[in-house]
Design a protein around this nucleic acid. Structure first.
Lengths: 212, 212
DNA sequence: TACGGAACTAAGCGCTCGCTCAGCTCTAGG
DNA sequence: CCTAGAGCTGAGCGAGCGCTTAGTTCCGTA
């Protein structure tokens, strides 16, 4: 079966990846919200739907979360922090700029594919967040941007890369990786690992890395 | 002013690009719907909002469109047809595969940037379409995919390109172009022409085109 | 001038939404 | 055994939703 082959059935692994969310009922609600938001979008999802996916009554949601938007905010914050951590870990490794960029793209894309439900909410439901919470999330995105841009700048300085427009190329690389969350399908032909490898190669070509 | 510099203020040019929609009131409603859907998303947009943007009462909408979803369907169909036409025009030109791919990406991206409100609805609100209308739109997307894949295959056969994974690279190229609609901002630093030129260069690198 | 029909509006119907609240249940501490 | 409090539910409120309907306005034609 496909999910087994991928080893990435999101519903199964979510229990582990949202371990920081307690108590148990709050975590179940949050996981239910991720699935519902990813499938239907934030505005099309009802609190009744989220609660029933978690096996609870509609009122139970409000014991653990102040509002429906509060749920989205927590998902978005945790997700962005995870995505940023992945990029920073890759950037902090030892090795050439090519190696670090390749590893950053590979792991970033792998996350967007394996956890595409979460990533879809994180990357595409940002606008559903109210004005008062958006700046916090936008700041995390800028950090992600800076992390990738720094690696590319390193590569240019070291003579490894040929990049006429560093900010533009950084934007394109991140855009390419993020959009994986939109089209990736667990039932499809590619595993998250395969997509990660393909994209790492494509990005190295985009920055004109010397063939190794 | 930015919109003037870009020469691409969407609200202004929409009157011309939706010329095929008649009568005038129907076109005004459709343009209002594009703006509202792009800003807030389909589900978060109310029919009252659309009607008031068009300077009409809520009931007037139902004289020209059967339902709110009917509006989305018409926007989506016209938009996808336009996007496909752009790709096919570039693919049908004379020239090398590099030239045709470059022109396809340049014009496709330029459209997604200049008309990013429309493109955002077309590319990201597909899931809001009911099950009965989606297949028609998905067929148009497959045609777009095939058009780009054919150009890349031509380049590989001619020895112009070095592409280990043609379907995967095709997917990545289209994904990269489409995501322009998500991040492009009229107030930003780049014009649609500039983004088109940048992306055409990046895509030629992705397919390993020989430097010309 | 009179009239048929298309375009449009004011009012509002039935429904579902996010969210609330009074009260029930279950468990830990004494 | 009793009790306090956290977790949860059933019922439902006020609001706003998509959409409808009865009736008005306006214009082309004769």
């Amino acid at each position: 079966m496909s999910a087994e082959r991928h080893g990435q059935n999101e519903a199964a692994t979510d229990d582990m990846s949202w371990a920081e969310v307690t108590p148990d009922a709050a975590r179940r609600l949050l996981i239910a919200a991720v699935q519902a938001f990813a499938e239907r979008g934030y505005h099309a999802t009802t609190t009744r739907d989220i609660a029933s996916r978690a096996g609870m009554s509609p009122a139970a949601l409000y014991i653990h979360y102040r509002t429906k938007e509060d749920l989205l905010l927590r998902i978005s914050r945790i997700g962005h922090e995870k995505a940023l951590e992945i990029l920073k870990d890759a950037a902090a490794e030892e090795g050439t700029a090519s190696e670090r960029l390749s590893e950053a793209v590979r792991s970033f894309v792998r996350w967007h594919a394996a956890r595409h439900l979460t990533a879809r909410v994180v990357q595409y439901e940002l606008d559903s967040l109210g004005e008062e919470h958006r700046p916090e999330i936008v700041a995390l995105r800028r950090e992600s941007d800076a992390t990738v841009r720094d690696i590319i700048n390193d590569g240019v300085k070291a003579g490894e890369f040929d990049v006429p427009d560093v900010p533009g190329t950084t934007l394109a690389v991140l855009s390419l990786c993020i959009d994986v969350a939109r089209w990736f399908n667990t039932e499809g032909r590619r595993t998250p690992d395969e997509v990660g490898a393909l994209y790492a190669d494509l990005v190295l070509r985009m920055v004109g890395a010397r063939v190794s």
